[in-house]
């Protein structure tokens, strides 16, 4: 399946998002800017904790939203990946009433509107 964007993630396992590190300042960013002379690619930690969250209760307008016409509310949030970067994404597989700041989660790849996208899912108890 085609990725929703090139150089956004690597499949792993485990899947990881690809950010960038400023070659001069060391500042870490996501997504990786298209400026190879300034930023070097950096695979971000695959796991992290929910930093903030919300539930999208109404269908976003299209464009730019590419989801199906039939809409179901979805969770999204910011996840602090390791101590490296706080990244925004859809939260997949969480019951809405279970969402809390600090919940552990992991990067996953899943289909979205016919392309492969990233999301953050619960970490299964081992």
């Amino acid at each position: 399946m085609e990725a929703i964007a090139p150089r956004l993630f690597v499949a792993g396992p485990p899947p990881r998002l690809v950010g960038g590190r400023d070659r001069q300042t060391g500042r870490i960013v996501f997504p990786l800017p298209d400026a190879p002379s300034r930023f070097e690619p950096l695979e971000l930690p695959p796991e992290g904790r929910i930093w903030s969250w919300t539930v999208q209760r109404f269908r976003p307008k299209s464009p730019p939203y590419a989801g199906p016409e039939a809409f179901a509310p979805f969770a999204l949030g910011y996840v602090e990946l390791g101590d490296m970067l706080i990244v925004e994404g859809r939260l997949s597989g969480f019951a809405f009433d279970s969402l809390r700041v600090g919940l552990p989660c992991r990067t996953v790849l899943e289909p979205f509107a016919g392309r492969l996208a990233y999301a953050f899912a619960p970490v299964e108890a081992s």
């Binding site: 964007a5 939203y65 590419a66 979805f74 859809r90």
Partner: peptide, 13 residues
């Protein structure tokens, strides 16, 4: 474009 395609481009969020 993927940022808006995924439904993340909303001020309310």
């Amino acid at each position: 474009d993927w940022y808006g395609a995924l439904g993340l481009m909303l001020t309310t969020q």
